[in-house]
Simulated assay, not measured.
Amino acid sequence: MTLLACIHDKAPLIEARDPDLGDLFPPGFLDLYEVHSYRNAARILAYACTPEFREITERLMEFRIRTEDIVASGGNKSQIAKTMERMLNPLGWNETRIRGDLFITKMIVTHEEKRRVAGKNRGQTVTEQRQREELYKVNGFIDGHKIDFVKGRVSFDLEWNSKDQTFDRDLYAARTFYECGIINAGVLLTRSAELIPLFTEVARRVEMKNFQNKYGASTTWMKKLLYRLDAGRGGGCPVLALGIRPAVVSDFEEWKDSHPVVRQTATFDVDTGAEDEDDLW
């Protein structure tokens, strides 16, 4: 082992992920959701955006998914996304876009030497400073960034089953809202890897050849989000990452009783490709 390697091994670790969540969440919340807080997002939400944080956590405590919603064929918007809309839209959480042009003021300072022609300092050379301004415009500097739900100074995105590159779009949108001073923090809800045994069991009981691909390694699982957050793709925006755990699926045991096994084995691998994403940038 080289000396440089030894030094690197001893270097203190800097992480944006918060080591402690405290008691910020209501009882039972962590049974339903995997929680990761970045840049003090949980504390910012709990103390600086208290009404919005309470609404999100209360609605998520009520939020449930039916197994049939998991099996249902895809479309522009899943039943799961529609359920979330029905819960949040009446409370004032609405899809929000921002766009804007950038105006740049260029201030030019010039210095000019002049000789005084009158007064007691007549004949002396002095330097006069003058300033003029030029205005420039960059069209579409912020171009239509969209977030599923925004209220007050909090954003909330749900990614149930999209291509994992969607996380890049979501994080870029959240950091743009944050850098523009529109939000204090963002929340992103997706699937926890703890759902994999449940999904594997579903795959054994449905006649869908593409079920594993539909929810495969290149779709929106928590690991794919954490990889991006750990790599700093959220910028300086505080982000609360939430992963849906099996307890949110309300009827799974009843669904199994009415759906006998149709194949003995079903592999469900979502643990590949998280570190091979340089081609996204």
Rank of each mutant, 00 (worst) to 15 (best):
R132I: 12
T127M: 02
T50K: 01
Y47G: 15
K214N: 03
C237E: 05
V117Q: 15
L4C: 02
D69I: 13
M87H: 00
P246L: 02
R17P: 12
R205E: 00
A81R: 07
I80M: 08
E112K: 15
S73V: 13
E95A: 14
M84R: 12
D230T: 06
P19Y: 09
D276P: 03
H36R: 06
F252K: 02
L280H: 08
E275C: 02
P12N: 03
G152P: 03
T267S: 10
G75I: 13
H145W: 13
G92I: 08
L3P: 05
D31A: 14
H259C: 04
N89M: 07
R115M: 11
Y227E: 07
E207T: 11
L195D: 01
S78I: 13
Y47L: 15
E254Y: 07
K256G: 04
R64H: 10
T265I: 10
A46K: 13
F167T: 02
F199Q: 04
L88C: 10
P197T: 00
M222F: 10
D143I: 08
V35P: 11
D278C: 06
T190D: 03
G140W: 14
A193M: 05
V187F: 05
A11C: 09
R263C: 12
G119M: 12
V109R: 03
E62F: 15
K77L: 08
Y136N: 05
A41W: 00
Y38A: 09
D168A: 04
R245M: 13
S37L: 03
E58Q: 12
